[in-house]
Design a protein around this nucleic acid. Structure first.
Lengths: 191, 191
DNA sequence: TCAATAGGATGATGATTATCATCCTATAGA
DNA sequence: TCTATAGGATGATAATCATCATCCTATTGA
């Protein structure tokens, strides 16, 4: 074999990470094969040594995106010693930093409408990513029973997703921050 | 002249309406020139007799989309005799009917992340559509002063936008309705 | 040291698009 | 009835893509 044992797996993961950033930053069509490979430092030709087709990359990069932000939010929740963990999640999600960095943020804010339109054959996998994400968040949500926590998840994330999306359409930083702060205060006082 | 006086204006408007539906249903790239013209019953060739370029059509079709849903929501607010007008808006926005019909719905739920990514030269016009939309809604929002109503607008629309987007990602009708109902009850009891 | 080979590069193909140049034709106005 | 012309149709071009076939080469394992 030409390359060290785990070489291929590493390159594969790098492609996926680069694609997960690009797909969040530029949308489902923004992650063109040639562009992603260029990000990774390769040319477009080798792509099909790593993925059956472009949809496979999309699925993997969405998985990586949900994993990425999921980890960030779980960490925030776990490090919230004094306050309730869901409040830490809200503060991170609605922070100007995460609003600025689409490419490291939540795929829901970056892609929801596009995800709702994907071809039928991908819907199932996207849905299961969403369910996974929800299941990782629910334990930290406010409420007594799991059903309450689930309801809280949907309401809290709806508000956060919408707020970040609207903020991202605004040209002025001050207005962005005001929308985020607004949503944050509203949520923090609602549960 | 070949056609009756107002012929061109009528065709122009029909193209814009068709494009505004298609752009909401299929995204910014879904509204391909040939596809939109076919919707209108024409071929792609005549397009440039009506629009300077595709961006011009995009701007006009977004304007039409905001106008369309804006009118629907204003009508709902005005016909809400007994209850507060903002509640009527929430009920229409979060109804399963509007969740089903992306092509007649709010461009924010259909396109926010894509709108946040448009080329700089279109940002200004999109922003002013958003401001217009907000200004039409604010009078119906809860709150004493205009500043309160504005804050309410951003929070209420954030929640509604996120809820409809998340609902649209779900494969089962029951789950969709549950997310919508959830958000609706939350908002109706929060002001 | 050397050959076998898998990862990667080059280049081609066929779709899909935006954009135009050019041609066609039905009707307004004489 | 006839003709000028604007709206619309046809067809071409260049760009961007996904996908592959083919070629190249560095490294592993002997």
């Amino acid at each position: 074999m030409r390359y060290p044992p785990e070489h291929k797996a590493k390159v594969h993961q790098k492609i996926v990470k680069d694609a997960s950033r690009r797909v969040r930053a530029e949308g489902l069509n923004g992650a063109a094969v040639a562009a992603v490979m260029r990000d990774t430092g390769l040319t477009h030709g080798g792509f099909y040594k790593h993925f059956g087709n472009k949809d496979a990359l999309l699925i993997e990069s969405l998985h990586e995106a949900f994993r990425d932000i999921g980890e960030t939010l779980v960490d925030a929740a776990k490090q919230s010693h004094a306050e309730e963990p869901w409040k830490a999640i809200v503060k991170v999600y609605l922070s100007p930093e995460y609003c600025d960095h689409v490419e490291r943020g939540c795929p829901l804010t970056a892609l929801s409408p596009e995800l709702a339109r994907v071809k039928k054959n991908m819907k199932g996998q996207i849905f299961s990513e969403l369910v996974n994400y929800k299941d990782r968040m629910v334990p930290f949500m406010p409420g007594k029973r799991t059903a309450d926590k689930e309801r809280a998840f949907f309401v809290i994330f709806s508000t956060m997703v919408g707020a970040v999306e609207i903020a991202r359409m605004l040209p002025e930083r001050a207005a962005q921050e005001s929308v985020l702060e607004n949503a944050r205060d509203f949520l923090l006082h609602s549960f």
